[in-house]
Design a protein around this nucleic acid. Structure first.
Lengths: 326, 326
DNA sequence: GTGAAAGCGCTAACAA
DNA sequence: TTGTTAGCGCTTTCAC
C-alpha cells in the first residue's frame, strides 16, 4: 500500500502539501499541484481512509439495522439506502436484528466503536434511553422509534382502513383480518385501521381477527381455522403480503374461489403479489423512495444540520388486482 | 468517547497496561487487572476500533458484493454470510454491483482503502488482473471467478441435466428451455446441461431455447411466443425460479393446464416456488450453507492459512412439486 | 505557498 | 510485572 509519504517523496514535497492537493484545501501552487497529481497517478495512490477516520472521527460508513434481510420487504429498503449513500461516498454496513433488542444493542455498540457516521434503523423495540446514549445520528425507517427521531413511514392505520373499506366496496359482507405479530407496532396500527371500519357492525366479533406472524405458512394455517369457524367470511385483509399469499393458499385448499368466494387484500406491495394467481390486491408502499429519503435525511443529520419534520408520511397506493375484482 | 488514556488515568496505570488487559495478552498482575477492569466498567470504555485498525492494518470488516440484493436469491446468501461473521466479530459491508465490472472495481477500491479484511464476491465478470492486484483475501460465491480463488458453488451443468431429465421422466415429449442472461456463466452452464439431454433428439432445434434474463415478466413474454411457435412443447425448464413463475403465468394466460398440458421446473429453490399454485418443482441449492461455508473459508484465508480445495461443490436437491406431478 | 510537527487512539517493542 | 515510547497514515495548526 502506498502512503502519503511515498507520494511526498516522489513529488519532492512534504506530506502536508500532498494532503492539501488531495483534499483541495489550503493554498498550493499550480506547478507543485501538478507534480503531486502526477505522483498520485503514477503510484496509484489511494488515501487510507482508516487513518483519515481516526483523525476526523468519522468513517464515511453508515449502518442499517433491519429485522431480517430475508424478509422480502427489506431488500428494496436496503437497496434504496445503499444506492443513495454510495453516491455520497458512504459505505453501508448491514445488520440483521431479528427484532431482538439485544442484537440491536450489540450492533449499535459495534458501530459506535467503528465511528460509523450514522445509522438507519427499522425497529420499534429500541429503548429510548440506550438510543440516546448512543449519540449517533439516526433516522427511523418503516417504524417510529421515538418522537424526536426523524422517521420515514407510511400511515399504517389509514392503510388498514383503506384496505378494509376496499373489501366492502367490492361487495364483501364479512371481512376478517389476519394480524401481524403483536410486538411489531405496524401490525397493531393496521389492525386498528381494520377495527375502525368493522367496529359496531352487528356481525363483528373478536374471533374475526387472528394472528399470523407475517409469515405465509402460519397465515395459511390460521386462515383455515378461521374459515372453518366462520364460513360466512367473504373477504380477508392480511396484515402483509406474505400472509396474503398464505390466505390464498388456504382458500385454494378449501376449494374457495378467489375473488368470487373470498376476496383478499395484502399490504406492502412487494413483487411477490404479482407472482401469484390470481394476482393480489395490495396497499403498496413507496419503499424505494422512503428509504432514499431516509438516507438523504441521515446525511443531513451527519452534516450537523437538524431536521424539523420529524414524522415523514408517505402515500400508500391501492393496487387493485384480481384477488378483489368482482 | 472515553479513550484508553482515560481508563489508564482512572485506574492509575499506564495505557500499555490497559491495553494488555483488554487484549488479554502480556503479563499483568491480578490486582491491577481488577483495577483496570473496574475502570473499564465504570467508564463504560469501548476500545476504538478505528485506531486499532490503523495499527493492525485490519478492520474486522468484510465486504460482500452481490449483483442485486433485490433479487430474491441473494438475501439468504447475504444473511448466511452475515450470521456467521458477526459471531466471529466481523461486520459486513453490502455492495450491489448490478453485474457491472465498473461498480465492482469501485467497491473493491473503496474496501481496500478501508482495510477491509476480505471480500466475498458473486461475479463472473471480475477481471483476473484487477482482482489479483487487489491483494485482499477473497472467495467466490455462486459463481467461479477464477481458478485460484476458492469458490462455493453448485454444479449448474449437472443441475441443468437433472432438471431436463426430470421433465422427460414425468412423461414430457418436447422440452424447451428459458435461458438466463448470456453474460452470467451460470445460465450458460445450466443451458449446457439442458443441451446435453436434448441434443440429437430428432425434434430438437435451436428455437426450443429462448432467453429470459432471469426475470419473471420477460420470461412470461418469451414463453408465450415460444409456445405459439411450438405448441407441441409440453415441458419447460426455466433457468431460475423467477422465470419459472413467468412461465407459469404465460401458461395460465394461454389456458394451458400445469402440469397436465405443460410441466414446469425452475432452478434455485427460493421460497417463491412454494407461493405459487401449483407449487413449482425446482432444483434447490443449499444457499444458507454455501454462504456460511464461504464465510468460514474467508476467515481461514484472513487468518493467513490457505485453502487447498479451490472449487467446493454443493449438492442440488430436486424438489418435486405440483408443477411436474403427472 | 510550503514544511515541521503534533496528535487522532491504539499496540507492541523495549526498558526498567 | 509495568511504563515509556515510537509509530500506524493522515490532517491541520503554526511558523517560515
Amino acid at each position: 500500500m502506498t502512503t502519503i509519504k511515498d507520494v511526498a517523496h516522489h513529488a519532492e514535497v512534504s506530506v502536508a502539501t500532498v494532503s492539501r492537493v488531495i483534499n483541495r484545501n489550503g493554498y498550493v501552487n499550480e506547478d507543485t499541484r501538478k507534480k503531486v497529481e502526477a505522483a498520485v497517478e503514477e503510484l496509484n495512490y489511494k488515501p487510507n481512509s482508516v487513518a483519515r477516520s481516526l483523525f476526523k472521527k468519522q468513517s464515511k460508513t453508515i449502518g442499517i439495522i433491519v429485522p431480517d434481510i430475508t424478509n422480502p420487504y427489506f431488500p428494496e429498503l436496503v437497496r434504496g439506502v445503499e444506492d443513495y449513500l454510495i453516491k455520497k461516498g458512504f459505505t453501508t454496513i448491514l445488520c440483521n436484528s431479528d427484532e431482538d433488542p439485544e442484537k440491536e444493542r450489540l450492533y449499535l455498540d459495534v458501530m459506535k466503536q467503528k465511528y460509523v457516521d450514522g445509522v438507519i434503523i427499522v425497529s420499534n423495540m429500541a429503548e429510548r434511553e440506550f438510543i440516546d446514549e448512543c449519540d449517533i445520528p439516526m433516522v427511523a425507517l418503516d417504524r417510529n422509534v421515538h418522537q424526536e427521531m426523524p422517521a420515514f413511514v407510511i400511515d399504517n392505520r389509514d392503510g388498514g382502513r383503506v384496505a378494509t373499506e376496499h373489501l366492502f366496496d367490492v361487495g364483501c359482507k364479512r371481512v376478517a383480518h389476519i394480524k401481524g405479530p403483536d410486538q411489531v407496532i405496524n401490525s397493531e396500527e393496521r389492525y386498528e385501521g381494520y377495527i375502525e371500519v368493522v367496529n359496531g357492525r352487528d356481525w363483528f366479533q373478536d374471533s374475526f381477527v387472528v394472528s399470523g406472524n407475517f409469515e405465509q405458512k402460519q397465515a395459511a394455517q390460521v386462515t383455515k381455522q378461521l374459515l372453518n369457524k366462520h364460513p360466512e367470511i367473504d373477504g380477508i385483509f392480511a396484515g402483509n403480503d406474505a400472509m396474503a399469499v398464505g390466505v390464498l393458499k388456504a382458500a385454494e385448499s378449501l376449494n374457495l374461489k378467489v375473488p368470487e368466494d373470498l376476496a383478499i387484500i395484502g399490504f406492502d406491495g412487494i413483487d411477490l403479489t404479482e407472482m401469484t394467481s390470481p394476482e393480489l390486491t395490495t396497499l403498496s408502499q413507496p419503499i424505494y423512495q422512503m428509504s432514499r429519503d431516509a438516507a438523504k435525511a441521515l446525511i443531513t443529520l451527519i452534516e450537523g444540520k437538524t431536521i424539523k419534520q420529524k414524522e415523514n408520511l408517505f402515500p400508500l397506493q391501492l393496487l387493485k388486482r384480481q384477488s378483489t375484482k368482482r
